[in-house]
Amino acid sequence: MANKQPERPFKVYTIKEGTVIDHIPRGRAIEILRMLKLVDSGNFVTMGSNFKSKKKGYKDIIKIEGKELTPEEVNQVALLAPKATINIIRDYKIVDKFVVELPEVFEDMVKCPNPKCITNMDPQNAKFIPTFEGKEMLLQCVYCEKLFKPEELNEYVK
């Protein structure tokens, strides 16, 4: 049944079980794939870029077959896509839908881009606190106190 939905706005595969991450800022889906290590996961993943968004402009979408994101993974999505919507799909139907929530602190996810930050010398992982300048989210390293744009945080903790 669900396969016969030509009017469905998504121009990528519908999925039977899994997660759809919607409203990702344009160009960041590929970073989310890297961050969540989805390519290596063995799950069937489709990604779309430059979808027209109802609200404004364009967006990216990711669909992951056979995997429901954990709360920790949802936090990670918030780093790159603070307004993303997570849809949990079971038997082709959306059974849960929620907007990601910004955690108070992002921990154990990404390395600090500042080579002089102590977290790049000691075993401690960096932590980042989201702050806003107007609508733009910036992330402040708890240790070296430098501010970064989300896309600057692109080296992920293994």
Binding site: N114, K116, C117, I118, T119, M121, D122, Q124, C141, V142, Y143, C144, E145, K146
Partner: peptide, 24 residues
């Protein structure tokens, strides 16, 4: 290293007085 005093404060309960952490 920048942030070294903050990290030190997490390693001990004793008070840390930062006398300079890199250029921070």
């Amino acid at each position: 290293a920048e942030g070294s005093a903050r990290l030190a404060s997490e390693a001990t309960d004793k008070p840390i007085l930062n006398g300079g952490d890199g250029a921070n």
